[in-house]
Design a protein around this nucleic acid. Sequence first.
DNA 1: CTGAAAGCGCTTACAG
DNA 2: CTGAAAGCGCTTACAG
Lengths: 343, 343
Amino acid sequence: MSNPTLEAVARAAGVSRATVSRVVNGSPKIKTESRRSVERAIAELGYVPNRAARALVTRRNESIGVVIAEPTGRIFGDPYFAEVLRGISVGLAAREQALVLVMSQSPEEERRAARYLTGGHVDGVILFSLHGDDPLPEHLKSHGVPVVVGGEPPHGARVSYVDIDNIGGAISAVNHLISLGRTRIATITGTLDMPAAVTRRRGYREAIRAAGRTTDTNLEESGGFSREGGQHAMEILLQRCPDIDAVFAASDLMAAGALSALYAAGRTVPEDVAVVGFDDSIIALSTQPALSSVRQSMEVTGRELANVLLQTIDARDQIVRHVILETELIVRQSTGGPPTRKS
Amino acid sequence: MSNPTLEAVARAAGVSRATVSRVVNGSPKIKTESRRSVERAIAELGYVPNRAARALVTRRNESIGVVIAEPTGRIFGDPYFAEVLRGISVGLAAREQALVLVMSQSPEEERRAARYLTGGHVDGVILFSLHGDDPLPEHLKSHGVPVVVGGEPPHGARVSYVDIDNIGGAISAVNHLISLGRTRIATITGTLDMPAAVTRRRGYREAIRAAGRTTDTNLEESGGFSREGGQHAMEILLQRCPDIDAVFAASDLMAAGALSALYAAGRTVPEDVAVVGFDDSIIALSTQPALSSVRQSMEVTGRELANVLLQTIDARDQIVRHVILETELIVRQSTGGPPTRKS
DNA sequence: CTGAAAGCGCTTACAG
DNA sequence: CTGAAAGCGCTTACAG
């Protein structure tokens, strides 16, 4: 239960506590001999540094807060969250930083989270799935807490972030549909209080206009980033514009819902209606037919979030860093691509 | 950035550090007057106790490790994880305990996790989604780390756990199918290295036998707890036994996959084949038709996990506690129930 | 390259 | 009911 202390290691190795501490922390100016005997003692005793004691003097907690500010049930159905979390976990583990998870689903919980996060318990904070004009990033920053957000930050928040090229991804998806000769291209948007949803819609519109066509809001419907929402949006779109021959959905989950609606309406995919999703998550391969999708690596996003944050903490600066990750269109059967082998 | 210390509060309130500490920790024997002036000073200065300093003396970290030992991609598609996590989060937040998330997907990562968790960094550990004979629970316990596992623990591990009534749930599902007059009832099982999967299959078999019928392994196929797996299992089952008129799937996700396969094979649900899932997760309401399902509250499971662990930590005992939560069959259209209003 | 010593911010017997 | 004091296990100038 009670682990050996530095003191015990020092005694066993015949050196001072300071020397052991230096070895543990990888100080370069240690005689090889001392280092070795210390290392042996550490191994023999199974010494593990006491985090609390270390944190008390270094003022570093070696832990990072990760807040998922998702008030809807989306977190329960969309692989996005688990994948980003996984990436963060990998990025932090490499640096021996603990991941303190904070799930805030209500204003009350967000207040509690803010209190905790500014209480000096963590060295920095990663925020993602932010909605609307969430003040949390600015609030943390103003309290001197290093912050990085996943996705585009709220208006006016001057904080570091890691995002993907949403606009480029959306454009490539729509251009692909256009190149297929589709003329009535609809879009199912995400929750429009999220920047990613707005930006993907903008990409859709830009691509339509760049092709010399006019946009039509009858061809746009929100699916709220959920499967059911996507299905429902597709039903509405079909009713409003029965001649739709292509759909760009801002997430795979919504695209999967759209597929169900199309199927139910007797449309074939991709013959009658071509469908492109976004994310290229595990879902894209599990639909029938497999989904063409804009690939983003959510795990890489997570890893980058961890990297940027740790960099900011190390540098002790207030420099705002932006990382934008590329996307890539993956063509599968839902737009006429070759059959995909199921994994 | 640097928060005020106990010392500062003591000065402001005109008392000693010890008194402030007692107020902060809710000691009963404090004069109301002192308490009040301390409370005012705390509020004015915005004092927040330094966790590290406190942890150093109390030997409590006020944080709990939560490990999700899921090596497969299942974590990315199944709402189960997020919901349990959510419940744990709520349970811990109420007690101001931090949730340190550890995602271990490989033996290497599990070793790292074990090292971290026995290093005295957390006060206790919640483990879930354990596979096979994972030695982690016993390992932690032998190092004196309080542990509670979600679901039935590995064979021989004498640790506390919170589980649901898997066998009762499975029996009620199959009995329901029998009561509908179905005679060829198949089952899609989960990953059979997990106790929940094995137990649900056992419930299926018991119910079949209790009805005076014989079990037939041709009617059993693993769907690996994934949507695709469920779909594939259903395809195999239909091929092997085209006369199947009902299916009990050990998770909603697999049931949703089965629905796709049935649809593709031209079978109607519930007319040709009745389907029951398990979990009653968000998925059950998003399929077409809506799924009958065995309801378990994953959030309650999470909250109970937190409660049992905190109780064990508080009691400083080694008592092994078991909590078994009830399940309830929810009947919807996939077995002929009334239409469900989509949320 | 190494050690003695101060100090990080708390809690908690102990004495009153 | 309250305060003085010791001590939790580390790190880090400082001096050598």
